[in-house]
């Protein structure tokens, strides 16, 4: 095992407190990325979520359903820095993360409708899907519970010495939970390979960051643990990549955790039942008009002649087909067999 031993008491394992946040020394220039592929990944999430919203409206999806529309650049930019063997964990606004880790859109959509073809065979729903194969560890419904869990995934990477990094996503609302700071402390103490990504979409359900956080500069929330933090424009996928590269490299090099605050925005309500009266229509419209992550990247693709109108149309068609097939399976797949009620409670050897 190549794993490092846990730090002993008295041996500093993290940068001194109050050291200004700085990029990792190990940062290398970013490898070129296929911008069209990034656009495609974001478009898939956008169209998938729009379709999920429609199916919810038709009564085919029940319970809670939290859409990721507006935040696509965050997970697509981050996951473009991931390697096979890395792990990903997030909370309940999770459909985008599943698609970005390469999970099958039809399996996700079928889970949303509670069908046998869903990733959890209909027993998890929107908030609870997993794919060990894709390194996706959920999908967790308890705000901030995924943060210690993700820290544990990082612990396992370090224990095994497999070189993996955990991408641990949380929201601005979760950032006020105590277990987040318990996790920061252990991750820094033991130099665990984890990147904490706070997706600050400005509202924890209906409560704005201003109303919930005494210190609103969430990128600094790791300072008292010596965890470097970076605030990044989460509405621009290239800014996400560039802003996150140092943090990911630092974790991968065994230098310990890093914190990213992705300044982003969700266009839809907290969940499907949210009339969003806590913000103005103008605020939403302004973000859509001026900062939409798909519009921004599309303009760049056209300006740099990386794609033309015909190419964009073909991409739209492809994505429409993928989402259409997903919606189709999500409606044609049978509900789980009644016998499934009693399976998977315990592993039976």
């Amino acid at each position: 095992m190549a794993a490092l031993p846990p730090r002993m008491p008295g041996v500093p394992s993290s940068p001194p407190v109050n050291e200004p946040t700085r990029p990792a020394a190990t940062q290398e220039p970013l490898a070129p990325v296929d911008l069209v592929a990034l656009y495609r990944d974001m478009l898939l999430i956008r169209r998938f979520e729009e379709k999920a919203g429609q199916l919810y409206g038709m009564g085919l999806i029940g319970g809670f359903c939290h859409l990721y529309i507006g935040q696509e650049a965050v997970v697509v930019g981050l996951q473009s820095l991931a390697r096979p063997g890395d792990s990903v964990i997030t909370s309940y606004r999770d459909h985008g993360h599943m698609l970005a880790t390469g999970m099958d859109a039809a399996g996700v959509m079928a889970e949303l409708t509670g069908r046998a073809a869903g990733y959890s065979r209909g027993k998890g729903g929107s908030m609870h899907m997993f794919s060990r194969e894709r390194g996706f560890y959920g999908g967790h419904g308890i705000v901030a519970a995924q943060v210690p869990l993700g820290t544990g995934l990082a612990f396992a990477h370090r224990y095994r010495g497999d070189g993996g990094v955990c991408f641990c996503y949380l929201g601005d609302g979760a950032a006020n939970q105590g277990q987040v700071y318990e996790s920061f402390n252990m991750a820094a103490l033991w130099s665990l390979p984890v990147v904490y990504v706070i997706e600050n979409n400005r509202y924890g359900m209906g409560t704005s960051v201003e109303r919930a956080s005494a210190m609103r500069d969430l990128a600094r929330r790791g300072e008292s643990f010596g965890i470097p933090g970076f605030a990044v424009d989460g509405m621009d996928v290239m800014a996400v990549r560039e802003g996150a590269a140092g943090a990911v490299a630092r974790a991968r090099a065994g230098e310990g955790p890093a914190l990213l605050e992705m300044k982003t925005y969700r266009y839809r309500g907290h969940s499907m039942s949210d009339p969003a009266k806590y913000r103005t229509k103008e605020e939403v419209e302004k973000m859509r008009a001026d900062h939409d992550p798909l519009d921004t990247l599309r303009a760049r693709l056209l300006a740099e002649a990386l794609i033309d109108d015909a190419g964009l149309k073909a991409l739209d068609r492809d994505i429409k087909a993928v989402v259409g097939e997903a919606a189709s399976l999500a409606q044609s797949s049978p509900e789980p067999d009644p016998a499934e009620l009693y399976t998977d409670v315990l592993v039976t050897p």
Partner: peptide, 24 residues
């Protein structure tokens, strides 16, 4: 110390961490 790990006094944190490690 790799396999016998002293934790801080942080029950929710180290319990969640251990559960995550078990998922892995």
């Amino acid at each position: 110390p790799r396999r016998v790990i002293d934790t801080p006094i942080t029950e929710m944190g180290f319990t969640g961490l251990a559960v995550g490690a078990a998922f892995a």
